[in-house]
Design a protein around this nucleic acid. Structure first.
Length: 422
RNA sequence: GUGGCCGUAGCUCAAUUAGGUUAGAGCACCUGGUUGUGGUCCAGGGGGUUGGGGGUUCAAAUCCCCUCGGUCACCCCA
């Protein structure tokens, strides 16, 4: 029996799992602060949903999807991202949802790539989507939520922003770019020769060819936006500036997925490996609803990689909020005290205090160690002496001070911490 | 998915250079020293098919092949 988890997955255990839980809780708070509503979509969908959304040529479709046939011979895919699902769900429930709709989700995504540090096959994402408004304000709101979340985690990030045009100006720009690069086709790397057909915009940020003179001199999309796109981008930039969100305009920032239009942005962390430095990717996808067969509906959102956020926090040495340990660990000295100890544990829990005991007969020293490991603030000791006089001994672990109090008031002592020194 | 490097105890590593007795250490874990006191100290203990399979050899952790896993770069993305 293989005990290691499948390739590209990992077990999250305490205390790291609790750090992740903290990220989830903060995500809920941030999203609600901005008026986003929580939603869930299926962890798997018909393969066609992702195939249509991402376009057949994209890597995520051609080699990164977890696709299988279910018992009814339907082609099913574990979600590699959630935006397509949210838009699908929006389109099928549009009558019952407010417009615009602001939703957020937290959950696992699955991509069958070759695993590396900070790139797993199961990855946890926090994402938000604003569906039904196409204004720059919507973009700024989404970016602002994201920037605030990262700032509150004490993370240093760089925000890159670009506009990649829309169905009007991008095809024309794309043609212009191809004409510029075509004469140099033979000088391009193998990958870029492919990209010349499939996704020429990618050549601009290719690791091999990106610095070649004829690539550097290539026309940039930001100089070839149509009027509405230019106006939109200007609105996003001035909105970010008004909101005090610093960013860089990266004219070479592009998107792998076809449905993205206009605004594209990324948050990068210097604490992550360079090949996996993107903590957040997002942008506008005004073309997606139509691709899925619905009416034209604008949308904008982001997806944040929470595993990467946690790694970046660890890498930066950021203080990750400490986990809350037990309020009180109850130590039973001797077999005879176990029933009384169990009763006191219940009493504490009824009073709303996190409490636990050993669940078996162990030496007192071992029980004290358990209390330490459980990060208990207090230990309650119940043994022969205490039982003889109807008392319980309480010990504050931080300073070792202890006190024997009447058993019927022990819970009171633990809830009125001010009384401790009296 | 393509290529490079690497897999020894739960973790970090030693023994691999040039095959040679029973594969060691620190940390962690358990027990005891203190028959009623954690985080310090001391002593003891448990824990390994050397990732797995095959091959070469009198003999393999060590050499060869395959496979699985990790890691780095690429592809791509969070």
């Amino acid at each position: 029996m293989e005990l290691a988890p499948p390739r590209g997955t990992q077990d999250l255990l305490p205390p790291r799992a609790e750090s992740m839980l903290g990220l989830y809780e903060a995500a809920h708070r941030s999203a609600r602060l901005f008026g986003f509503r929580y939603l869930e979509t299926p962890m798997f969908e018909h393969t066609e949903l992702f195939a249509r959304a991402a376009g057949d040529t994209s890597d995520v479709v051609t080699k990164e999807m977890y696709t299988f046939l279910d018992k009814g011979d339907r082609s099913i895919t574990l979600r590699p991202e959630t935006t397509a699902s949210v838009v699908r769900a929006y389109l099928t429930n549009a009558h019952d949802l407010p417009s615009p709709f602001k939703g957020y989700y937290i959950g696992s995504q699955f991509r069958h790539g070759r695993p590396q540090a900070a790139r797993l096959r199961e990855l946890r994402q926090f994402g938000v989507e604003v569906i039904g408004v196409g204004t720059p304000e919507a973009d700024v709101e989404v970016i602002g939520l994201c920037a605030g979340y990262l700032r509150d985690r004490s993370l240093t990030t760089t925000l890159l922003v670009n506009s990649i045009g829309d169905g009007v100006c991008r095809p024309a720009y794309r043609q212009l770019l191809i004409e510029h690069l075509e004469p140099h086709r033979d000088e391009l790397c193998e990958d870029c020769q492919q990209r010349l057909q499939s996704n020429p915009l990618r050549i601009l940020d290719c690791k091999v060819d990106g610095k070649r003179p004829f690539v550097l001199s290539a026309p940039l999309i930001s100089d070839h936006l149509c009027d509405p796109c230019r106006e939109h981008f200007a609105g996003v930039r001035s909105g970010l500036e008004r909101a005090g969100i610093s960013y860089e305009h990266d004219a070479r920032l592009v998107r792998g997925l076809d449905y993205y239009t206009r605004t594209a942005f990324e948050f990068l962390s210097p604490a992550l490996p360079e090949a996996a430095a993107t903590v957040v990717g997002g942008g506008r996808y005004d073309g997606l609803a139509e691709v899925l067969g619905g009416p034209s509906t604008p949308g904008v959102g982001f997806a944040m990689g929470l595993d990467r956020v946690l790694l970046a926090m660890e890498g930066e040495g950021v203080d990750i909020p400490a986990t809350r340990g037990l309020h009180c660990f109850v130590v039973a000295v001797g077999e005879d005290a176990r029933a009384a100890a169990a009763a006191f544990v219940s009493e504490l829990r009824d009073a709303g205090l996190a409490a636990a005991g050993a669940l078996e007969d162990r030496p007192m020293k071992a029980q004290m160690k358990m209390a330490d490991r459980a990060e208990a603030a207090f230990v309650a000791i119940i043994g022969e002496r205490e039982q003889a006089e109807g008392a319980i001994t309480l010990k504050r672990m931080a300073d070792g001070i202890q006190k024997t109090v009447p058993a019927n008031d022990a819970v009171g002592w633990l809830t009125r911490l001010d009384d401790w020194t009296q």
